[in-house]
Design a protein around this nucleic acid. Structure first.
Lengths: 351, 351
DNA sequence: CTGAAAGCGCTAACAT
DNA sequence: ATGTTAGCGCTTTCAG
């Protein structure tokens, strides 16, 4: 493996000059730069990042703590993060925390810190297990690099938390209002697992919309993001004659709900409208095509990483460019006005 | 930041002994080990990986070149890879190659090599652009670490390629045979983009099944994995009265196909059967529930990483434990026997 | 079982 | 605009 001294020798310059060229530092003549580059190329020279990191104290890498799930949301967010990190000239290191992991986020952060990262992204964190027995005096990790928390405020206590993701509450609200605007008396909700901030956030958005319109708040169905759980919730809902509109916290659950309704001979959208969340690629092609709201994952990731990199490179004041992403409701065929009912003659199931 | 000498001082031992303890090297008395560990804990000591890498020449990290897509297959594979890598005690670095990337895989590999990785995983590679103008004398990257290619043989020329992923051909074959077994005269295929090895592989599996049974091979429809493209293919297929069975190269496209058929008033599965590929989580909940084949992503990733780590740690002979994964066809409601037709009276659309 | 010395390949400060 | 001198914090010999 050729080292920078080898390049220097071949180019007839000092080793430091090679370093200058490779780091695009100023004060290098064009001629020398050319010679160095050519020598490096000729030798097939590759910079040794470990040495660079050791000497400079910076690794030029960012670590991300992500959920080990192929769910559309987390997966899309990770892709956005990788792209943004790479564009910023950093390398990406990934640690997944499986749900129910004992060490959890703290352990993942610890391992990233040990690897040496200049910044950390915590993507869509879920609440730590606060079981009594797990609490073996877990002293909080000492985090000395900036941390970007994507999708949950205050989920991680660290000195340098730079941004605390997007609120999907507004999106949930828009989804709910869409149904209300169609004339539905109220909207049922199939929520995600409540130890996910994203799930709680959407639930609150739904609740807020209902309150503002003075609508009755029906009991919440709880799912785990899977179509499977949506199906289970849908079976409950299908038995309730009051249900005319359902907002599911993600598209997969919405698909499960629709399936349950269809099996129960409740027509979608004629009898029951369903709205999802995410706009997964197949949303437009299921039957009926699903009305949903699109999440701007790439934009969120890009903006977050911009902030994080800023915090890494200029540890001064940070710019809270909370440039609100546009809300995009995608209306398809799964939503419609409620079935006509003569007021007063409406059959009620609730006691 | 405390260093290992600080720990040594506090524990009253030499710095080398600290190193021994932290690396679980033998020949350290229990008492000394305890003292060192306690001192390290007390100081909040964290090993510096850059220094370790510089001194040892190994980074204990593995790099993965992945596609920047949230498609179920690639995303699932990445998760499996992360898990396996972590279980093996390595860190994971990720570089995505966006489709149509000019530098492509070679560039991604180069950047991983510069970061310093002990091994490289190339996940589901697509063919490099072989356009004339892109061929600017791209000298092949000099790769001096073992490489694991997941999902495509010989896609990357390197001295130490250890394994060359699973063949999905067999799975495609099983899917096709399922339709043939139901009594269909032939099976149409909606293929993935042909610069993906996975797509070609499945196409060949389909073709092999047809050939073996002496079936006529209808023209192939080409998609890009999206439900959108499946829908377009489905519209073509819907217009052809001969079509009674369709095998799509992934579930998303299958969903698109079904949508197109439904819109064209061709009933699934009564008139046309559809089989997908992957067993995405919603497959069971669309209408009709989709028959598909499951891919064992986790097992594939685990086995591949096992091989890679072996190649890294014992650069001797490698064990080709090609322990074939079990094939799993998931039969649901989207497939059924073909509609009854009186021989000779069948309406034909083709000229 | 434990320790001392010698780097790993680079960047950071200070020359020149 | 370029070169010199010190380390960065570990692991690796090699001695005890």
């Amino acid at each position: 493996m050729p080292r920078s001294v080898d390049v220097a020798r071949l180019a007839g310059v000092s080793q430091k000059t090679v370093s200058r060229v490779l780091n695009n530092e100023p004060y290098v003549s064009v001629e020398v730069r050319r010679r160095v580059l050519s020598a490096a190329d000729q030798l097939g020279y590759r910079l040794n990042n470990a040495a660079r990191a050791l000497a400079s104290g910076r690794t030029r890498s960012i670590g991300v703590v992500s959920l080990g799930t192929a769910l559309f949301g987390p997966a899309s967010l990770l892709i956005g993060v990788e792209r943004a990190v790479r564009d910023a000239g950093y390398a990406l290191r990934v640690v997944n925390t499986m749900e129910g992991d004992s060490s959890g986020i703290a352990g993942a952060v610890e391992s990233l810190l040990e690897q040496g990262v200049d910044g950390i992204v915590i993507s869509e964190p879920i609440d730590e297990q606060t079981d009594e027995q797990t609490d073996e005096q877990t002293e909080p990790v000492r985090v000395d690099v900036p941390v970007l928390v994507l999708g949950a405020p205050s989920a991680f206590a660290a000195p340098r938390v730079v941004a605390t993701g997007v609120s999907t509450r507004l999106l949930a609200r828009v989804a709910t209002e869409h149904l209300l605007d169609l004339g539905h008396a109220s909207v049922h909700h199939v929520a995600g697992p409540q130890h996910w901030y994203a799930a709680r956030d959407r639930l609150e958005g739904w609740r807020a919309a209902l309150r503002e319109r003075g609508c009755h708040e029906p009991p919440v169905q709880h799912g785990d993001w899977s179509a499977d759980s949506g199906y289970a919730a849908g079976r409950e809902l299908a038995g309730d004659g009051e249900v005319t509109a359902v907002f599911a916290a993600n598209d997969d659950m919405a698909i499960g709900v629709i399936r349950a309704l269809v099996e129960a001979r409740r027509r979608v959208p004629e009898e029951v409208s369903v709205v999802g969340f995410d706009n997964v690629p197949v949303a437009a092609y299921i039957t009926p095509p699903l009305t949903t709201v699109r999440q701007p994952f790439d934009a969120v990731a890009a903006e977050g990483i911009k902030l994080l990199v800023h915090a890494i490179e200029q540890p001064g004041a940070d710019l809270p460019t909370a440039s609100g992403q546009p809300v995009e409701l995608v209306v398809r065929a799964s939503t419609a006005p409620p079935p006509r009912t003569t007021p007063g003659r409406r059959r009620t199931t609730s006691g």
